[in-house]
Amino acid sequence: MPELLKVSITEDINRRSGASLRIIVPMKQVPDMRQVKFDTEKGKVDRSSAAAEINPFDLHALETAVQLKEKLGAAVTAISMGPRRAEVALRDALARGADSAVLLEDSKFAGADTLATSYTLACAIRKLGGFDLIICGEKTVDGDTGQVGPELAEHLNIPHLAYVSKLVEAGEKLVAVCDMEGEAHIVEASLPVLLMVTKDINIPRLPTFRDKAMARKAEVTIWNAEELSSFADPSRFGIEGSPTRVRKVFLPSEEGRKGKIFRNTNEEAISDVAQAILDFLG
């Protein structure tokens, strides 16, 4: 058990939730942003240029869930909305310790902004039945909004703790440290609650070869829009349920830059640059 996660939530929470905690980890498949190439002409990311992976922030959420499972006993469900190929990311989650996985896949889900995404996830989580904890990452590397977690909590009418960097000892309640820019808040919450965790909370484990092999054979549940219909208003799915629209994408202008490049390193050039630096600093 890593030092960071000294949880002693113990019997109290176990009793509340029956046999063990039910934890849901929402996740997203994203392109590997360290490798991905940008088509600067079209202002698009070239998805074929990099492998897809689990959003790195989500791995910290999954690790938090799996550590709680090891400590207290829990059933961890990974859930993702995306195209069929996102099943690969969910198998990776199974290899890293999730017990079950659900993929929400339907063309009706496509083009969703954070409001429609969080709504669709909320409907699927209702269909799954009860839960004690939802643990998600602080943001995705491609969308970079950090909105889906709090929006999901709002749809489910549960509180959320944002930017959790540490879970600390708790009795009847869960206690977490939330990093709020220069200030950390220690917050107590009762369950159910949604935790949005930061990268500081843990170091995600790597799956073993054996885990990977097992995950390849495991079942991933796939639900389409129809299967969520008794829990949802389908007009709130996908592009139809998304109030925000990207109108256009353009390149940042560097026109304001002087762009004065010295091609040799003589004293005059260096002196000019030194003067410019001091001028700029006033």
Binding site: D113, T114, L115, S118, D144, T145, G146, Q147, V148, G149, P150, E151, L152, A153, E154, H155, H160, A162, Y163, D179, M180, E181, M196, S242, P243, T244
Partner: peptide, 22 residues
């Protein structure tokens, strides 16, 4: 800010309106 993002997302979802981040 972290507080603004966290609170803003909840308000937007409660109102059922769009929110653009950052």
């Amino acid at each position: 800010t972290r507080w603004g993002r966290s609170l803003g997302a909840r308000i937007a979802a409660a109102l059922g309106t769009g929110l653009t981040a950052d």
